[in-house]
Amino acid sequence: MTNEKAKISIKASATKGRSAEQARTGAASNSMAMKLLNVEAMYGTFRAVNNVTLDIEAKSVTAFIGPSGCGKTTLLRTLNRMHETLPGATVKGSIQVGGADLYDPSVDPVRVRRSVGMVFQKPNPFPAMSIAENVSSGLRLSGTKSKSDVADIVEESLRKAALWDEVKDKLKEPGVSLSGGQQQRLCIARTIAVEPEIVLMDEPCSALDPLATLKIEELIGELKTRFTIVIVTHNMQQAARVSDTTAFFNMGADRGGYLVEAGPTSKIFTNPSNKLTEDYIAGRFG
């Protein structure tokens, strides 16, 4: 256990070091997994997210923090074009992944979501499927891969999600028969099975107990070596533990959310540039 922890913290500090350096020197765009430019998200005429310009670094963890209702989840859902599935919801601005704009009119949202995956707040394994079927559902429903490949990918994904040892003997059991924390790791395995570049996480631990939360946080530390992770959390301490970059959002006078400050986690938590950030971190509001 301690060895793993040591490995993770070394990796973490190594990445942190890298991102801090890049922040100083102006990062080259090929280490940016995602660039947000003037992104706005609307529900009808109500602007839930105001003008956000932000860079998400590749193979690192970026946390969105801020008080409730400041649009963090709404913004997250624009990153995989899920926001627009709600009636009347629209997005302005551009979000680029590898130079391609997700919101270009020629782009199919379905295709986007295979590159940008999402783990939800409440674990939602498909009840009509077994554990193995859940993990492979993304692959099978998108119609790719042969049968033998699928089995291998299932095992690999479960290993990467730190769940394999616990379920390898009961792959045919229903997905809903696992505990809450295991279900969430199952959902993570399911998401990474389709090999997205970026994994979005919407408060993934808020429905879990502290032990399960700890396991997921460790998992995030391992996953970021392969994936870019953007995590929304209302738990500041979690953001401090888990992320390399933190973006702090707040609610404006028009009840819409806006980006206050973004930067390396260590800096945001110890020496933020904006007074509002400092107040929030200190717990003076939110």
């Binding site: 590898g98 391609a100 704009d101 270009d104 020629s106 782009v107 199919d108 379905v110 986007v112 590159s115």
Partner: peptide
Amino acid sequence: MQAGSDAFRTSRRS
């Protein structure tokens, strides 16, 4: 991992 707009354009919406 693919890059470029083409990556997102292909789909089977049939």
